[in-house]
């Protein structure tokens, strides 16, 4: 799994601390929702120490923190719809049963199946070829931690935790800025993650702002055999799955001498011819995408 933004930062010379989650198959593709705006629902189970209405309103307010931000002067909204309380639902994603794929916020209790030191986590399910997030669930570990909506208590602040997890739900990874909401650790009583820092907003804007890179365009049907990717002028990807047989040739051409080992042993004239053929195919594909 990769964090392509780091590479982009190195190339641009601009230091951002935020990190975007990217598809391991296509490092240029950040994970994100195709439509700005999603519906979330609450699981009906609650820890004893929290009043239901307080928990829901706190978490709903935490979604609001991310819902309307300014990206280089342009108002960028990501509206969240509160779908209310549901029962008998489970986190995760089913390709067969789409109706069960709510974006669930759940208190997991004794069913917590992750290490005990984790306060909360977010699972994202996405299309590996486009990076489109199709489902997200937030799990809160009330088996090992006591949550509170009152910052004066020496417990895990629910809003502090929720705002961070919602950042993951939007496609953000952990920031390297200790002050950021998307920073990884959170001591008890911490409340600073309730409010976004500029680094968090910059991360959001990189995904959903006016300068965000468009979703990849796919030609053909993606298969495990792989596809050829082209970075277009606007920075978006064209993923050509129509000519998978040429992928290895194209990869060799694009990777150069340090690429696929087999290319280093191919006769030079044959390799050049194959690369030329692949290049012409790509140019045709590029024209189709305009």
């Amino acid at each position: 799994m990769t964090r392509v933004l780091l590479g982009a930062l190195l190339l641009s010379g601009t230091a951002h601390a935020y990190v975007l989650y990217t598809s391991p198959e296509y490092e240029e593709v950040p994970l994100r929702w195709r439509t700005k705006g999603i519906t979330f629902v609450f699981d009906d189970r609650l820890p004893q120490e929290i009043v239901e209405s307080a928990a829901q309103s706190t978490i709903a307010s935490s979604f609001d923190v991310w819902s309307a931000l300014s990206c280089t002067g342009t108002a960028t909204s990501f509206p969240f719809q509160n779908g209310g309380v549901v029962s008998g639902k489970s986190v995760g994603f089913s390709e067969e049963d789409g109706a069960s794929n709510e974006n669930l916020v759940a208190w997991v209790g004794s069913a917590w199946s992750h290490p005990s030191s984790v306060v909360a986590l977010t699972s994202l399910t996405y299309d590996v070829h486009t990076g489109e997030i199709v489902d997200a669930d937030i799990e809160l570990n009330d088996r090992d931690f006591v949550f509170s909506t009152d910052p004066s208590l020496s417990e895990m602040d629910l809003s502090n935790t929720a705002v961070h997890e919602i950042g993951h739900l939007l496609g953000l990874d952990h920031s390297r800025a200790p002050a950021a909401t998307m920073y990884a650790t959170a001591p008890p009583e911490e409340t600073k993650k309730r409010d976004l820092t500029q680094d968090d907003i910059d991360g959001f804007c990189a995904i959903y702002g006016p300068k965000a890179v468009a979703f990849p365009e796919i030609i053909g049907v993606p298969t495990d055999a792989g596809c050829i990717k082209h970075v277009q002028d606007d920075g978006s990807l064209l993923i050509d799955c129509a000519t998978p047989a040429e992928q290895s040739v194209a990869s060799t051409c694009e990777a150069g001498p340090r690429g696929a080992g087999s290319g280093a042993f191919a006769p030079a004239f044959a390799l050049a011819a194959l690369c030329g053929l692949a290049r012409r195919r790509r140019e045709r594909a590029d024209r189709r995408s305009v």
Partner: peptide
């Protein structure tokens, strides 16, 4: 570790080992 690929989809959990 949480997450993994299934067909054209994958699940990830930010913070989990990769």
């Amino acid at each position: 570790v949480p997450g993994g690929r299934f067909g054209r989809f994958a699940q990830v959990v930010p913070g989990a080992p990769r």
